[in-house]
């Protein structure tokens, strides 16, 4: 109540749950892109709002996508 500026509400739902994704797929690069930073790091649950189960699947999916060069391990040196 003291700090009125902090009125924004965090997106509370897991996008994967909304879309009823049963298994996060490492081939779905479009979707995975939303969950890595521009440096290529995986975005934490605290920020993305994913549920635990989907975040677990997501990290594995991202790592697989990286190993087959669909996603980068790290941003390239400019």
């Amino acid at each position: 109540m003291l700090n009125k500026r902090r009125t924004y509400r965090r997106q509370k739902v897991c996008k994967f749950c909304l879309d009823k994704v049963l298994q996060v797929d490492f081939k779905d690069v479009k979707r995975l892109r939303n969950y890595v930073s521009d440096r290529g790091k995986i975005i934490p649950r605290r920020i993305s709002g994913n549920c635990a189960r989907h975040q677990r699947q997501l990290t594995i999916a991202i790592k697989r996508a990286r190993s087959i060069a669909l996603l980068s391990f790290a941003a390239e040196l400019a």
């Binding site: 994704v21 049963l22 298994q23 996060v24 797929d25 081939k27 779905d28 690069v29 479009k30 979707r31 189960r53 677990r56 699947q57 594995i60």
Partner: peptide
Amino acid sequence: THGMTVGVHGEAVGSR
């Protein structure tokens, strides 16, 4: 995504 089907096969939950 690039003509691939996604999630069709993904019936399994908790099969990480």
